[in-house]
């Protein structure tokens, strides 16, 4: 009798398993949360040091064009104008996204609308392979193929925004393609049938219906691609030229936020002014990637609203 009473008062085995499972998942979530918060806190505090401890004006940092944290200018102020890097980062990101998007959409359309199952699967694995190639390989190919080619055609060194754009184009193409494929596959098969039954050609169905319905997903794909391009360091560093000066044109040497960081961070000592300046660049990067994430959320939510309505019926 006592035994039964005891058993009834105790949590059952299943309940205990449940609480152990819950504990493990909350524990992991907490660790990840702490990690994210500490990264953000660390970069923010380091990144802001230059403004508070060294009294650099934010407007100087964002708008001046000379980057030379080691020396002082004629007024005795440090030269930490990050505008050239910001401009270059945005240039390579936007140009490579513009270049990659049409290709990505074309490949995605081929995979979802034209290719048979085997062809689509083959392409899928090619794309996955492209995603998996380490960025140093892309950079190396850029350095040994793209840069000499540009040098041959346009003269100069061959390093610069154009070379960076071409390398990033290849790197973000698979990202944008596979996300676009997902969004086109999510367009219900019925829509295609209805469209054809109304007398649409296949091409009309694609551009009047499928692309239109898939637009939020395609935009998300492009933003993901841009986020990847903006954050890519190594491959870009190998082909951009790494001169922190305002780019004059697409084939003059330049430097992105990331390439400046990877080049400089090993050559400065923690706590020095030059090091603080680099942390401020990192802060800009962090803010940008948070911004890209928010954009993805907003665009994705717009698509979700549409889907919710669809499920309501």
């Amino acid at each position: 009798m006592n035994n039964i009473k005891k058993e009834l008062n105790m949590a059952s085995k299943e309940t205990r398993q449940d609480s152990i499972g819950r504990f493990i998942s909350y524990f992991c979530i907490t660790i990840i949360g702490v990690l994210v918060i500490s990264i953000i806190y660390f970069i923010t505090s380091r990144g802001l040091t230059m403004f508070f401890a060294n009294h650099v004006k934010l407007s100087d940092f964002l708008l001046k064009t000379t980057w030379n944290p080691g020396t002082l200018d004629s007024h005795g102020k440090p030269e930490v104008g990050a505008l050239p890097m910001i401009v270059t980062s945005f240039s390579v990101t936007i140009l490579s996204a513009i270049l990659a998007t049409p290709f990505a959409i074309a490949v995605a359309l081929f995979m979802t609308e034209y290719a048979d199952k085997r062809g689509a699967k083959l392409l899928q694995s090619v794309i996955e392979l492209l995603v998996g190639i380490p960025s140093v390989i892309y950079g190396y190919i850029g350095l040994s193929v793209v840069v000499p080619m540009i040098r041959h055609i346009y003269g100069g060194t061959g390093f610069g925004i154009l070379a960076g754009t071409i390398v990033l184009f290849v790197m973000i193409l698979p990202t944008i393609t596979s996300l676009t494929v997902d969004s086109l596959r999510a367009v219900p098969q019925h829509y295609r049938q209805v469209s054809l039954s109304l007398g649409a050609t296949k091409w009309q169905t694609i551009y009047k219906l499928i692309l239109r319905v898939g637009t939020p997903g395609i935009l998300t794909a492009i933003i993901f691609g841009m986020a990847r391009a903006f954050g890519e360091a190594l491959a870009v560093q190998m082909v951009i030229g790494n001169a922190a000066i305002m780019p004059k044109n697409l084939v003059s040497v330049a430097s992105t936020l990331t390439s400046q960081l990877t080049t400089g961070i090993g050559n400065t000592v923690l706590g020095t002014f030059a090091n603080n300046a680099l942390w401020s660049l990192a802060l800009v990067l962090l803010i940008m990637s948070l911004l890209f994430n928010t954009l993805v959320r907003i665009v994705g939510n717009k698509g979700a609203v549409k889907n919710e309505r669809k499920n309501k019926q």
Partner: peptide, 11 residues
């Protein structure tokens, strides 16, 4: 023309 079993309006 054709009308299907499920109502399928476009979004």
């Amino acid at each position: 023309g054709m009308v299907f079993q499920q109502p399928i309006p476009f979004p």
